[in-house]
Write a protein that binds this DNA or RNA. Structure first.
Lengths: 360, 360
DNA sequence: ATGAAAGCGCTAACAA
DNA sequence: TTGTTAGCGCTTTCAT
């Protein structure tokens, strides 16, 4: 008895489970091609042909299948398709923060290219955290995205080696990959910053401050390097107090700006390392009486309508995304072999703030 | 002979194909659990246990399996997993345009909620095209996303009925669903616009213009309704020339603004229906000598630093996304049954432009 | 033109 | 603790 009851129980449970699976099925309760085939009175493969628009089906059969599809509300399960075919027709984009106005257009342009190739875009924000970047990238790889566009937060991407070897197309954007050889699409941060700072120097400034992002971020380091180069070109020795790198949190930037603009020999001009920094520096300058020259890296909306307009070194976020995505699909075509480093030019847009003369 | 050669050929080809599949395999050349099992000298299920952190594996076995995983660069194929388990742990977001500063924060907040639930976010831009919206939504459904957050472009979502019936959680944001009963999270467009326009009226304006998005867009219609209500509340008859609805393309908006601000009885104030419109109207006003009062729907960056600051009716894009996503996951929990309509309040932020007196 | 059978890589259910 | 078997829903291959 003791043994027989459990056995009966188990059998009973199995039947219940079986019934549940049939009627309330995984995915809620979705019809499969098999269901459509049964309803239309045709074979499974015929349904597959109709669904995928393959030839070799008489109009009459096609109509019957289509009716069954509509009646059942059938929708092909792409998971199964992917498993069989091996391609997901989707690419992943890992960036820092979708809410940052710099990444919106970038993401959109990647999406447009993906769409042109019939692929969907899956994206994730790393929040500038290397661990989260890796976690995200690997999750995307587990989903077998065909390719990956990565704006790296970390500086070691060796964890991607098996993936790349396995055929996952990969392009890094905005910052280079760390410790692996991969395609990179960048803006000319060094050249852009150098030009922006030289512009300030040309307008008579000598005490020029630089406020940028954390030095471990490649673009921040490059822009600082550009600043230093421009100063050196002009034979101006740089003082430590003029440079401040760190998080772009408004409080940190505000303090940095206020420090530079105070004291016995304040800077007369500031070069802001990115859009977040520029916005805060504009605020700080607006609050103070004395005019301070400003050039910012990245364009910002309404910059032309401020008094004075904000002079910027603009980079083309959409072009960055488009270039990267196109390269990604060329990798997938097989038409690309050697990793390359592509650098897009920046553009100085003068609007007033960068042309102010030194206040002293 | 004639028959044997082809047969031999076919067999030969089959062997070649077989070899190719094994070595250069789909997904490039990825090891499977079977490969890992063979290498570690254990059964398939043991590998599965290790990969998924299931109990019942001795530390020693686990170590051997882990070594095989690392050596082979194995990464679980989630497509297969999804096929078996029925849940993709991913949700879809369909919005208008990721490049629009309103949608960046919204998307980011949806992503954060998804992340907290262990889900990835797949997103797509409809470009305000109903067909593209449907195409995108159905593609996401074919991928069996667990849920869908949709900012609708179209006004008929009956195509979603089979999906919802099949268990796809669905929440509409920013605009209601058309012709189906579904969860909706909105900002109070009507109330916000009414308050904004009433604010202008309170500052002495009577000839007030309204420039908004295409009337088929729910928010645009609601804001226009709010405008009309405020005018009616004040007993001001509205003239047709004061209202202009259409695409938010800068050229169209510019022309609309210039028309309203010209002629014998120009408007003395403008209510701008969304952030895109506001930006263009600010430009038009700045170019003209005469001051014009302005209140815009949606906050915009740097609005506080313009001269005068731009008074806005702000909506909280991040809260919109968060609320929607949380509701989505509550649907998936099964803790939600009846579709609801949630309306988030807006907030009037006075900065100067909305407090200007009429110029005449 | 149509269908039957095999199997993609994984997990659930069961057995040992 | 470990392994075996049977699918998940689709596409591929091959017969008919």
């Amino acid at each position: 008895m003791d043994r027989r009851i459990p056995v009966a129980d188990r059998t009973g449970q199995r039947i219940v489970a079986e019934t549940a699976r049939r009627s309330e099925n995984r995915y809620g309760n979705r019809p499969t091609m098999k269901d459509v085939a049964a309803r239309a009175g045709v074979g499974l493969k015929t349904v597959s042909r109709v669904v995928n628009g393959e030839p070799g089906v008489t109009p009459d059969t096609e109509r019957r299948v289509q009716e069954a599809i509509d009646a059942l509300g059938f929708r092909r399960n792409d998971s199964a398709r992917v498993l069989r075919k091996g391609s997901t027709a989707s690419i992943g984009l890992v960036l820092e923060d979708l809410a940052d106005p710099f990444y919106g257009p970038l993401s959109r342009s990647v999406e447009e290219v993906a769409r042109a190739h019939g692929a969907l875009l899956i994206n994730g924000s790393s929040a500038e955290d290397p661990e989260r970047e890796q976690e995200l990238v690997l999750a995307l790889c587990a989903r077998r995205v065909d390719g990956l566009v990565v704006i790296p937060a970390g500086d070691d991407h060796r964890y991607l080696e098996p993936e790349i070897k396995a055929g996952v197309a990969t392009v890094f954007v905005d910052r280079p990959a760390g410790k692996i050889d991969a395609d990179v699409v960048l803006s000319d941060s060094f050249g852009g910053a150098r030009e922006g700072v030289a512009h300030l120097i040309a307008h008579g400034h000598r005490r020029i401050g630089f406020i940028g992002d954390m030095p471990r971020i490649h673009t921040a380091a490059e822009r600082l390097r550009g600043y230093r180069a421009a100063m050196e070109d002009a034979g101006i020795p740089v003082e430590d107090a003029w440079m401040s790198l760190g998080v772009t949190d408004p409080r940190r930037v505000r303090k940095a700006a206020e420090d530079m603009l105070s004291g016995p020999a304040p800077v007369t001009a500031v070069f802001a390392g990115n859009n977040r920094v520029t916005v805060t520096v504009v605020r700080v300058i607006a609050e103070r009486g004395r005019p301070v020259a400003l050039v910012g890296f990245d364009d910002i909306e309404l910059a032309d309508l401020l008094q004075p307009g904000v002079t910027v070194v603009a980079q083309d976020a959409a072009a960055l995304g488009r270039t990267a995505a196109e390269r990604l699909f060329r990798q997938l075509d097989g038409s690309l072999v050697t990793p390359e480093r592509i650098e897009l030019p920046t553009r100085l847009i003068t609007r007033g703030s960068g042309e102010l003369p030194p206040a002293d």
